[in-house]
Nucleic acid binder design. Structure first.
Length: 270
DNA sequence: ATCGCGACCTGGTTGC
DNA sequence: TGCAACCAGGTCGCGA
């Protein structure tokens, strides 16, 4: 996309533009005629800085896709918006519409101010993140999913990182040693690198890259989606449980459930 | 200030 | 076969 000019913008559904408060027409008119200067990402936020100084910002939510298609290609079932560039179309496709698009005033967009660096970023400060985790009484999985703590980690990679490090996701942050937290962050980075090398995790056609291609990391998952199957480290059964409105998968033997969970906790001392 | 829950959506799968 | 319930990879805002 970089270097190409946006000739026309078509918005096919209003909902993905809910974060663009001035509305779809404003969205389209701001983009038309602008050239895409680069492509950026922080955590799960994506943006394309424009030569006018603004930026097209996107978040894919759960089911969103950005696809690069030839202009004449058949419209996807859940096509929500399309940008026409010289010889291609950039399409936003989203079944569940938890994803969104907007044009932000600046680059980096103010919308990503609260998003922390991700574990693969060269500037990622593991010591800083470890301190933040160890100051919290929240369960460590919740903290891994908190994009203001570290970004890019979602439900799958949190479960995989926790398994790799042998840590249960309900262990409160303040109960973990600095060493264990650093091992956990390194484990998450390792999982993310391995997933990236295989094109990500694709359970179905919803999870594809800009060329519509699926990744193969599902084959390498150790706990996620493996309820009742054998732990690849100890042979014990993988447990699935509901946690904060979503599933957590872990090995009870390799990742012991903290005894104190569910009981009254003493406030942490610093 | 921090924490945990429900809301926001559509559609595919499962089980009665 | 039909229908309801459940499930899904993410935030975000609210009340406690």
């Amino acid at each position: 996309m970089v270097g190409r000019q946006i000739d026309a913008v078509e918005v096919l559904h209003q909902r993905p533009l809910r974060r663009h408060l001035p509305g779809a027409d404003d969205f389209a008119s701001r983009l038309a005629g602008q050239r895409i200067a680069s492509a950026q990402r922080r955590g799960k936020y994506l943006w394309l800085p424009l030569d006018g100084g603004e930026a097209l910002v996107a978040h894919l939510g759960m089911s969103g896709q950005l696809l690069v298609q030839p202009p004449g290609a058949e419209p996807e079932r859940h096509l929500r918006a399309r940008l026409s560039l010289a010889d291609v179309e950039l399409r936003f496709v989203d079944q569940r519409m938890f994803g969104w698009l907007t044009v932000d005033e600046s680059d980096p967009p103010g919308l990503v101010d609260h998003i922390a660096l991700d574990p693969l970023d060269p500037a990622f400060d593991a010591d800083l993140v470890a301190r933040r985790i160890r100051r919290s009484r929240a369960g460590v999985k919740r903290l891994l999913l908190d994009q203001t703590v570290a970004s890019g980690i979602g439900n799958i990679y949190a479960d995989e990182g926790l398994w790799l490090a042998g840590v249960h996701g309900e262990r409160p942050g303040y109960q973990l040693s600095r060493k264990v937290v650093l091992e956990l962050l390194a484990a998450c980075a390792e999982v993310m690198s391995a997933a990236l090398a295989q094109g990500g995790t694709s359970f179905d056609a919803l999870y594809v890259n800009v060329n519509g291609e699926s990744g193969y990391f599902e084959r390498s998952l150790n706990v996620y989606g493996r309820e009742g199957e054998a732990c690849r480290r100890c042979g014990g059964p993988i447990t699935r449980m509901s946690f904060a409105n979503r599933s957590s998968h872990f090995c009870r033997r390799c990742q012991p459930v903290p005894r104190s969970v569910g009981r009254a906790q003493l406030a942490p001392r610093y």
